[in-house]
Nucleic acid binder design. Structure first.
Lengths: 214, 214
DNA sequence: CGGAAATCATACTGGACAGTCTAGTTTCCG
DNA sequence: CGGAAACTAGACTGTCCAGTATGATTTCCG
């Protein structure tokens, strides 16, 4: 029948699976693992509970898939941030300030914060999953940042970096420590003022370049 | 009777209240807010459930008291760390390295990490409590660090700091960003190696002093 | 068309848990 | 001593929820 004819490039089952995945992401991020209910997931996905359990063995597995799936998105996101701010840059200070801003912007987005809260909250309950999330997501993205910084060295904008990953952590720490802690601990209420972020980014880059300028 | 005669400088009720408080701290830190059960608190405190509810109106209030009570302890702890490493120091590099170590040591202790996980996890459910914890604990301790750094300026070991709190955040970010994130996200399993902490602290101080040495 | 597979709505099971209630015991203090 | 207040053990209520079961309906595909 025509009314029920959805465009369906991947099959009904796969479509529902994706709906469940999306709904579960939302529910887990909002309520945490224990606070999330499978009934709510099913309802939000527009699917019966039975279908949820057909696609995902149980609540734990669903959680694991949700969490690990977020890493791909993040990696792409950061890769483009590095590319857009550093590739082709001619001035280190300007490029790093732009990068700092991008990082602050991306990583204080609500859903990013909620995900980080979720992973941290469940780090003891699901050490394998959260550990995997950390190494394949967080750590990897800092290694990538380290490599991006070495490209600045290659172009004569920074001095030689003996341990690019450590330097990347230093940059991230200078830029993110203050706003990230506030965002994580104090809830997602008041956003930091752009002028404050501007100050933080500028001063962070000042300190960074005092050590690492070419 | 003699056998039941405990030394009791504060009254029976107060003693039990403290036992409940201690037990609840343990249970909340271990299982999170939703995972904690009032029955377990009562059992661990060696007290009946009724007594728990006589001392603390309900689970939410108990949680709030537990969380906010941790700040006093932390403040004292950090104040002595600043005093012991900075007061009377004559060499900035040496003093700051010692401070960095102390911070890493204190703040990656298991119960500190569990507390931070708890606060972060419940930041959305209890925004007032967690927000208060953050401003009166975390932020305040960084302001204190800022003041401690200005004492180094006063003694000619660092240059003038126009915004000591921001500089304190930079120091903390350089020192703690990497090990703290790992500890928070990846669970409380493997401790970072002391040699790695040593490297991090040394390099952090190098960068810090490149900008802020006298 | 027609049967198999997927899905649906809904009800159910079993267990956990916050918070209350009761009835009996212990402790304190005048 | 004696009564009031604190405390205890344990049962109980109401709710929520993971996961399963059932029986009807829809979709897919040969």
């Amino acid at each position: 029948m025509i009314s029920g004819m959805e465009l369906n490039p991947e099959g009904r089952t796969a479509t529902k699976r994706r709906a469940i995945h999306a709904a579960a992401t939302e529910v887990f991020l909002q309520h945490g693992y224990l606070g999330a209910s499978m009934d709510e997931v099913a309802a939000k996905a527009g699917v019966s509970k039975q279908t949820v359990y057909k696609q995902f063995e149980n609540k734990e597995r669903l959680f694991a898939e949700i969490v690990l799936a977020t890493n791909d998105e993040l990696a792409v996101n950061l890769a483009t941030a590095y590319a857009e701010t550093l590739d082709g840059a001619t001035d280190a200070r300007e490029a790093l300030r732009a990068l700092a801003f991008r990082l602050l912007e991306s990583l204080t987005a609500d859903h990013v914060l909620q995900l980080r809260r979720l992973v941290i909250a469940e780090a003891d309950r699901f050490p394998e999953v959260c550990g995997a999330w950390f190494t394949t997501g967080f750590e990897k993205s800092l290694e990538t940042l380290g490599r991006a910084l070495t490209t600045l060295t290659d172009r004569g904008l920074l001095r030689e970096l003996d341990d690019p990953t450590l330097v990347a952590y230093q940059f991230a720490g200078l830029v993110m420590y203050k706003p990230m802690n506030r965002a994580m601990f104090a809830g997602t209420r008041e956003r930091p003022k752009p002028t404050e972020l501007d100050t933080i980014a500028t001063r962070a880059v000042d300190v960074f370049l005092a050590s690492y300028a070419a």
